[in-house]
Simulated assay, not measured.
Amino acid sequence: MGTTTIARRLAVAVGTFAAAVTINAGGAAAQDAGELYLYNWANYFPPELIEKFEQETGVDVTLDVYDSNETMLAKLQAGASGYDIVFPSGYMLGVIIDEGLARKIDASELSNFGNVRAPHDAPSFDPERAYSAPYMWGTTGIAYDTDRAPELEESWKEFFKPRDALKGKIAALNDQVEMYNAGARYLGIDVCTEQPKQAQQILDLLEAQKPHLAMYSSTGTVDRMIAGEVVMHHMWNGAAHRAKEQRESIKYLYPKEGLAFWSDHMVVVKNAPNPENARTFINWMMAPENAAAASNYTGYMNAIEGSSQYLNASLKNDPAVNMPDAYADRLRPSKECSPEARELRDKVWTRLKS
Protein backbone atom coordinates (compact mmCIF):
# COMPACT_ATOMS: atom_id res chain seq x y z
CA MET A 1 0.00 0.00 0.00
CA GLY A 2 1.40 3.39 -0.85
CA THR A 3 2.35 6.05 1.72
CA THR A 4 -1.07 7.70 1.60
CA THR A 5 -2.80 4.36 1.84
CA ILE A 6 -0.83 3.53 4.99
CA ALA A 7 -1.91 6.80 6.52
CA ARG A 8 -5.54 6.10 5.73
CA ARG A 9 -5.39 2.67 7.32
CA LEU A 10 -3.61 3.83 10.49
CA ALA A 11 -7.05 5.09 11.48
CA VAL A 12 -8.56 1.63 11.24
CA ALA A 13 -9.05 -0.05 14.58
CA VAL A 14 -6.71 -2.96 15.07
CA GLY A 15 -8.14 -6.24 16.24
CA THR A 16 -7.47 -9.93 16.08
CA PHE A 17 -9.81 -12.72 15.28
CA ALA A 18 -9.39 -16.41 14.75
CA ALA A 19 -11.48 -18.28 12.27
CA ALA A 20 -11.71 -22.01 11.97
CA VAL A 21 -12.13 -22.88 8.32
CA THR A 22 -12.10 -26.12 6.36
CA ILE A 23 -11.38 -26.30 2.60
CA ASN A 24 -10.07 -28.21 -0.59
CA ALA A 25 -8.09 -26.47 -3.36
CA GLY A 26 -8.10 -28.76 -6.37
CA GLY A 27 -4.65 -29.75 -7.51
CA ALA A 28 -2.97 -28.08 -4.52
CA ALA A 29 0.27 -29.25 -2.98
CA ALA A 30 0.29 -31.60 0.00
CA GLN A 31 -0.85 -30.01 3.25
CA ASP A 32 1.23 -29.38 6.35
CA ALA A 33 -0.39 -29.92 9.75
CA GLY A 34 -3.71 -28.49 8.58
CA GLU A 35 -3.10 -24.97 9.88
CA LEU A 36 -2.37 -21.57 8.37
CA TYR A 37 -1.55 -18.25 10.03
CA LEU A 38 -2.21 -14.97 8.19
CA TYR A 39 -0.92 -11.54 9.22
CA ASN A 40 -2.79 -8.84 7.29
CA TRP A 41 -4.09 -5.28 7.40
CA ALA A 42 -7.13 -4.71 9.61
CA ASN A 43 -10.49 -5.10 7.82
CA TYR A 44 -8.71 -6.21 4.67
CA PHE A 45 -9.82 -9.83 4.25
CA PRO A 46 -13.41 -11.13 4.25
CA PRO A 47 -14.18 -13.58 7.09
CA GLU A 48 -16.52 -15.52 4.83
CA LEU A 49 -13.66 -16.13 2.38
CA ILE A 50 -11.60 -17.65 5.18
CA GLU A 51 -14.54 -19.94 5.93
CA LYS A 52 -14.78 -20.92 2.29
CA PHE A 53 -11.06 -21.72 2.12
CA GLU A 54 -11.32 -23.90 5.21
CA GLN A 55 -14.35 -25.73 3.93
CA GLU A 56 -12.58 -26.50 0.65
CA THR A 57 -9.17 -27.50 2.02
CA GLY A 58 -9.57 -28.67 5.58
CA VAL A 59 -6.94 -26.15 6.72
CA ASP A 60 -7.69 -24.18 9.89
CA VAL A 61 -6.91 -20.47 9.42
CA THR A 62 -5.98 -17.93 12.07
CA LEU A 63 -5.85 -14.24 11.14
CA ASP A 64 -3.93 -11.58 13.05
CA VAL A 65 -3.90 -7.94 11.92
CA TYR A 66 -1.59 -4.92 11.82
CA ASP A 67 -2.03 -1.21 11.18
CA SER A 68 1.00 -0.40 9.01
CA ASN A 69 3.75 -1.95 6.91
CA GLU A 70 6.23 -0.77 9.51
CA THR A 71 4.46 -2.61 12.34
CA MET A 72 4.51 -5.82 10.35
CA LEU A 73 8.18 -5.39 9.38
CA ALA A 74 9.25 -4.69 12.95
CA LYS A 75 7.60 -7.92 14.09
CA LEU A 76 9.35 -9.95 11.42
CA GLN A 77 12.69 -8.27 12.14
CA ALA A 78 12.26 -9.08 15.83
CA GLY A 79 12.06 -12.75 14.90
CA ALA A 80 8.33 -13.26 15.39
CA SER A 81 7.51 -16.84 14.57
CA GLY A 82 4.19 -18.44 13.78
CA TYR A 83 3.08 -16.38 10.77
CA ASP A 84 2.84 -18.03 7.36
CA ILE A 85 1.69 -15.20 5.07
CA VAL A 86 1.99 -11.41 5.32
CA PHE A 87 0.50 -8.79 2.97
CA PRO A 88 3.08 -6.01 2.43
CA SER A 89 2.82 -3.11 0.01
CA GLY A 90 5.15 -2.99 -2.97
CA TYR A 91 7.88 -0.84 -1.48
CA MET A 92 7.85 -2.89 1.73
CA LEU A 93 7.95 -6.15 -0.18
CA GLY A 94 11.31 -5.08 -1.58
CA VAL A 95 12.60 -4.49 1.93
CA ILE A 96 11.35 -7.87 3.16
CA ILE A 97 13.03 -9.66 0.26
CA ASP A 98 16.31 -7.73 0.68
CA GLU A 99 16.44 -8.51 4.38
CA GLY A 100 15.94 -12.21 3.79
CA LEU A 101 12.58 -12.32 5.56
CA ALA A 102 10.64 -13.84 2.63
CA ARG A 103 10.54 -17.48 1.56
CA LYS A 104 11.01 -18.27 -2.11
CA ILE A 105 7.77 -19.77 -3.44
CA ASP A 106 8.06 -19.38 -7.24
CA ALA A 107 4.50 -18.11 -7.52
CA SER A 108 4.79 -17.96 -11.31
CA GLU A 109 4.83 -21.78 -11.31
CA LEU A 110 1.53 -22.09 -9.41
CA SER A 111 -1.39 -23.34 -11.51
CA ASN A 112 -3.48 -20.17 -11.13
CA PHE A 113 -0.68 -17.69 -11.81
CA GLY A 114 -1.70 -17.58 -15.46
CA ASN A 115 -4.70 -15.53 -14.32
CA VAL A 116 -2.50 -12.64 -13.19
CA ARG A 117 -2.81 -9.58 -15.40
CA ALA A 118 0.10 -7.45 -16.57
CA PRO A 119 1.81 -5.45 -15.13
CA HIS A 120 1.11 -7.29 -11.87
CA ASP A 121 2.80 -10.44 -13.16
CA ALA A 122 6.28 -8.89 -13.09
CA PRO A 123 6.59 -5.97 -10.63
CA SER A 124 9.97 -4.27 -10.30
CA PHE A 125 10.41 -5.34 -6.68
CA ASP A 126 9.90 -9.04 -7.54
CA PRO A 127 10.07 -9.30 -11.35
CA GLU A 128 9.99 -13.09 -11.49
CA ARG A 129 7.38 -13.38 -8.73
CA ALA A 130 9.80 -15.64 -6.92
CA TYR A 131 8.61 -14.45 -3.49
CA SER A 132 5.14 -13.02 -3.92
CA ALA A 133 1.74 -12.96 -5.61
CA PRO A 134 -0.64 -9.99 -6.00
CA TYR A 135 -3.50 -9.23 -3.61
CA MET A 136 -5.22 -5.81 -3.98
CA TRP A 137 -4.17 -2.65 -5.78
CA GLY A 138 -5.33 0.92 -6.29
CA THR A 139 -4.43 4.17 -8.03
CA THR A 140 -4.17 7.87 -7.28
CA GLY A 141 -5.72 10.04 -9.96
CA ILE A 142 -8.30 12.81 -10.40
CA ALA A 143 -12.04 12.78 -9.71
CA TYR A 144 -14.45 15.48 -10.81
CA ASP A 145 -18.18 16.22 -10.86
CA THR A 146 -19.44 16.02 -14.42
CA ASP A 147 -22.58 17.98 -13.48
CA ARG A 148 -20.48 20.99 -12.50
CA ALA A 149 -17.66 20.85 -15.03
CA PRO A 150 -17.29 20.26 -18.75
CA GLU A 151 -15.91 16.98 -20.02
CA LEU A 152 -12.23 17.08 -19.10
CA GLU A 153 -9.20 15.84 -20.97
CA GLU A 154 -7.54 12.75 -19.49
CA SER A 155 -4.48 14.71 -18.46
CA TRP A 156 -2.82 16.14 -15.35
CA LYS A 157 -3.10 19.46 -17.20
CA GLU A 158 -6.69 19.76 -15.96
CA PHE A 159 -5.37 19.60 -12.39
CA PHE A 160 -2.20 21.65 -12.63
CA LYS A 161 -3.42 24.23 -15.15
CA PRO A 162 -7.14 24.29 -14.45
CA ARG A 163 -9.77 25.93 -16.58
CA ASP A 164 -11.04 29.27 -15.29
CA ALA A 165 -14.38 27.80 -14.24
CA LEU A 166 -12.64 25.35 -11.88
CA LYS A 167 -10.15 27.65 -10.21
CA GLY A 168 -10.67 27.70 -6.47
CA LYS A 169 -12.85 24.58 -6.67
CA ILE A 170 -10.06 22.00 -6.67
CA ALA A 171 -8.60 20.05 -3.73
CA ALA A 172 -5.19 18.39 -3.71
CA LEU A 173 -3.94 15.63 -1.48
CA ASN A 174 -1.78 16.91 1.34
CA ASP A 175 0.83 14.35 0.40
CA GLN A 176 4.38 15.16 -0.58
CA VAL A 177 5.04 12.04 -2.65
CA GLU A 178 1.71 12.00 -4.50
CA MET A 179 1.83 15.70 -5.40
CA TYR A 180 5.50 15.75 -6.39
CA ASN A 181 5.17 12.59 -8.47
CA ALA A 182 2.02 13.80 -10.23
CA GLY A 183 3.79 17.03 -11.14
CA ALA A 184 6.84 15.13 -12.35
CA ARG A 185 4.73 12.88 -14.55
CA TYR A 186 2.90 15.83 -16.09
CA LEU A 187 6.25 17.43 -16.93
CA GLY A 188 7.80 14.20 -18.18
CA ILE A 189 10.40 14.16 -15.41
CA ASP A 190 11.61 11.07 -13.56
CA VAL A 191 9.94 11.04 -10.13
CA CYS A 192 13.32 10.10 -8.68
CA THR A 193 15.25 12.85 -10.42
CA GLU A 194 18.49 13.94 -8.77
CA GLN A 195 18.78 17.07 -10.91
CA PRO A 196 18.06 20.34 -9.01
CA LYS A 197 16.91 22.07 -12.20
CA GLN A 198 14.22 19.46 -12.77
CA ALA A 199 13.12 19.64 -9.13
CA GLN A 200 12.83 23.41 -9.59
CA GLN A 201 10.55 22.83 -12.60
CA ILE A 202 8.28 20.71 -10.43
CA LEU A 203 8.27 23.37 -7.72
CA ASP A 204 7.43 26.06 -10.27
CA LEU A 205 4.46 23.99 -11.48
CA LEU A 206 3.17 23.37 -7.95
CA GLU A 207 3.58 27.00 -6.93
CA ALA A 208 1.70 28.16 -10.04
CA GLN A 209 -1.11 25.76 -9.21
CA LYS A 210 -1.35 26.64 -5.51
CA PRO A 211 -3.47 29.85 -5.85
CA HIS A 212 -6.09 27.88 -7.76
CA LEU A 213 -6.57 25.25 -5.04
CA ALA A 214 -9.25 25.33 -2.38
CA MET A 215 -7.05 23.27 -0.06
CA TYR A 216 -4.50 20.53 0.45
CA SER A 217 -6.19 17.70 2.35
CA SER A 218 -5.85 13.94 2.49
CA THR A 219 -8.77 13.46 4.88
CA GLY A 220 -12.47 13.81 4.18
CA THR A 221 -11.98 13.39 0.45
CA VAL A 222 -15.13 11.31 0.01
CA ASP A 223 -17.40 13.56 2.05
CA ARG A 224 -15.98 16.65 0.35
CA MET A 225 -16.89 15.39 -3.10
CA ILE A 226 -20.30 14.13 -2.02
CA ALA A 227 -21.15 17.49 -0.44
CA GLY A 228 -19.99 19.37 -3.52
CA GLU A 229 -17.47 21.44 -1.56
CA VAL A 230 -15.10 21.10 -4.52
CA VAL A 231 -15.62 20.14 -8.14
CA MET A 232 -12.32 18.31 -8.64
CA HIS A 233 -10.25 16.29 -6.19
CA HIS A 234 -6.87 14.60 -6.40
CA MET A 235 -7.76 11.28 -4.75
CA TRP A 236 -7.51 7.53 -4.49
CA ASN A 237 -9.67 5.42 -6.76
CA GLY A 238 -11.37 3.60 -3.88
CA ALA A 239 -12.34 6.94 -2.35
CA ALA A 240 -13.63 8.11 -5.74
CA HIS A 241 -15.74 4.97 -5.98
CA ARG A 242 -17.26 5.52 -2.54
CA ALA A 243 -18.03 9.13 -3.43
CA LYS A 244 -19.69 8.03 -6.67
CA GLU A 245 -21.94 5.70 -4.68
CA GLN A 246 -23.53 8.82 -3.19
CA ARG A 247 -23.09 11.24 -6.09
CA GLU A 248 -23.41 9.49 -9.44
CA SER A 249 -22.04 12.42 -11.45
CA ILE A 250 -18.50 11.87 -10.12
CA LYS A 251 -16.02 10.58 -12.69
CA TYR A 252 -12.47 9.29 -12.13
CA LEU A 253 -9.73 10.19 -14.61
CA TYR A 254 -6.66 8.18 -15.59
CA PRO A 255 -4.22 10.89 -16.77
CA LYS A 256 -2.48 9.94 -19.99
CA GLU A 257 0.91 11.01 -18.60
CA GLY A 258 0.66 8.22 -16.04
CA LEU A 259 -0.60 7.86 -12.48
CA ALA A 260 0.61 6.20 -9.33
CA PHE A 261 -0.61 2.79 -8.37
CA TRP A 262 0.03 1.02 -5.10
CA SER A 263 -0.27 -2.68 -4.60
CA ASP A 264 -0.37 -5.15 -1.74
CA HIS A 265 1.01 -8.67 -2.02
CA MET A 266 0.91 -12.11 -0.45
CA VAL A 267 4.31 -13.25 0.82
CA VAL A 268 5.31 -16.40 2.66
CA VAL A 269 7.49 -15.64 5.68
CA LYS A 270 10.97 -17.16 5.71
CA ASN A 271 10.33 -19.22 8.85
CA ALA A 272 6.68 -20.02 8.05
CA PRO A 273 5.54 -23.09 9.99
CA ASN A 274 3.16 -24.17 7.20
CA PRO A 275 4.81 -23.24 3.87
CA GLU A 276 2.90 -25.72 1.73
CA ASN A 277 -0.44 -24.61 3.12
CA ALA A 278 0.69 -21.05 2.41
CA ARG A 279 1.38 -21.87 -1.24
CA THR A 280 -1.99 -23.61 -1.47
CA PHE A 281 -3.71 -20.52 -0.09
CA ILE A 282 -1.88 -18.15 -2.44
CA ASN A 283 -2.75 -20.29 -5.45
CA TRP A 284 -6.37 -20.45 -4.27
CA MET A 285 -6.52 -16.67 -3.96
CA MET A 286 -5.48 -16.30 -7.60
CA ALA A 287 -8.71 -18.02 -8.70
CA PRO A 288 -11.08 -15.37 -10.18
CA GLU A 289 -14.03 -16.03 -7.88
CA ASN A 290 -11.91 -15.81 -4.72
CA ALA A 291 -10.06 -12.69 -5.82
CA ALA A 292 -13.39 -11.04 -6.62
CA ALA A 293 -14.73 -11.84 -3.15
CA ALA A 294 -11.76 -10.00 -1.67
CA SER A 295 -12.40 -7.01 -3.93
CA ASN A 296 -16.08 -6.89 -3.03
CA TYR A 297 -15.10 -6.73 0.63
CA THR A 298 -12.22 -4.22 0.40
CA GLY A 299 -13.56 -1.95 -2.35
CA TYR A 300 -10.29 -2.20 -4.27
CA MET A 301 -9.37 -4.13 -7.39
CA ASN A 302 -7.49 -7.38 -7.68
CA ALA A 303 -5.05 -8.38 -10.41
CA ILE A 304 -6.84 -11.51 -11.59
CA GLU A 305 -8.19 -11.97 -15.10
CA GLY A 306 -11.76 -13.24 -15.13
CA SER A 307 -12.65 -11.89 -11.69
CA SER A 308 -14.86 -9.11 -13.04
CA GLN A 309 -17.79 -11.48 -13.65
CA TYR A 310 -17.95 -12.10 -9.89
CA LEU A 311 -17.70 -8.47 -8.78
CA ASN A 312 -20.58 -6.63 -7.18
CA ALA A 313 -22.33 -4.50 -9.79
CA SER A 314 -21.23 -1.26 -8.10
CA LEU A 315 -17.57 -2.25 -8.46
CA LYS A 316 -17.85 -3.98 -11.80
CA ASN A 317 -19.54 -1.00 -13.42
CA ASP A 318 -17.22 1.64 -11.99
CA PRO A 319 -14.09 2.15 -14.12
CA ALA A 320 -12.48 3.87 -11.13
CA VAL A 321 -12.10 0.43 -9.56
CA ASN A 322 -12.50 -2.01 -12.45
CA MET A 323 -9.96 -0.24 -14.64
CA PRO A 324 -10.45 -0.59 -18.40
CA ASP A 325 -7.62 -2.56 -20.02
CA ALA A 326 -6.89 0.40 -22.28
CA TYR A 327 -5.46 2.27 -19.28
CA ALA A 328 -3.03 -0.43 -18.17
CA ASP A 329 -0.05 1.31 -19.78
CA ARG A 330 -0.76 4.47 -17.75
CA LEU A 331 -0.02 2.82 -14.42
CA ARG A 332 3.25 3.81 -12.78
CA PRO A 333 4.43 1.61 -9.89
CA SER A 334 6.00 3.29 -6.89
CA LYS A 335 9.77 3.68 -6.95
CA GLU A 336 12.22 3.75 -4.08
CA CYS A 337 14.21 6.92 -4.76
CA SER A 338 17.81 7.61 -3.75
CA PRO A 339 18.58 9.77 -0.69
CA GLU A 340 19.58 12.58 -3.06
CA ALA A 341 16.25 12.42 -4.89
CA ARG A 342 14.30 12.31 -1.63
CA GLU A 343 16.17 15.34 -0.33
CA LEU A 344 15.21 17.32 -3.44
CA ARG A 345 11.59 16.27 -3.03
CA ASP A 346 11.63 17.30 0.63
CA LYS A 347 13.00 20.73 -0.28
CA VAL A 348 10.34 21.25 -2.94
CA TRP A 349 7.54 20.35 -0.53
CA THR A 350 8.93 22.52 2.25
CA ARG A 351 9.15 25.49 -0.11
CA LEU A 352 5.65 24.86 -1.44
CA LYS A 353 4.04 24.66 2.00
CA SER A 354 5.96 27.55 3.57
Rank of each mutant, 00 (worst) to 15 (best):
M1D: 02
T4V: 11
L10E: 13
A11E: 09
A11H: 12
V14G: 15
G15S: 05
V21C: 06
T22P: 10
I23G: 12
N24V: 11
A29G: 14
Y37W: 05
N40T: 12
A42N: 15
N43G: 02
P46I: 05
P47E: 05
P47G: 02
E48C: 02
I50T: 13
E54Q: 12
E56C: 08
V61W: 14
L63T: 03
Y66P: 10
S81Q: 14
Y83G: 09
I85M: 03
P88Q: 07
Y91F: 06
V95G: 06
E99S: 03
D106H: 04
S111A: 15
F113S: 03
N115W: 04
R117D: 06
P127E: 01
A130P: 04
A130V: 09
S132D: 02
S132T: 05
S155P: 08
R163W: 05
L166I: 00
G168R: 06
N174S: 12
R185P: 00
R185K: 06
V191M: 08
V191G: 07
Q201Y: 02
L203I: 06
A208K: 15
K210D: 11
L213V: 13
S218F: 13
D223A: 14
A227G: 07
V230P: 02
V231M: 04
H233W: 04
A239E: 14
S249Q: 06
S249K: 10
Y252C: 01
V268E: 08
P273M: 03
E276F: 06
N283S: 09
W284V: 01
M285C: 13
A291N: 10
S295E: 13
M301A: 15
E305R: 10
E305N: 07
E305A: 12
S307V: 01
L311Q: 06
A320R: 10
N322M: 00
N322Y: 01
P339K: 09
R342C: 07
R342I: 14
E343F: 12
E343N: 13
L344Y: 15
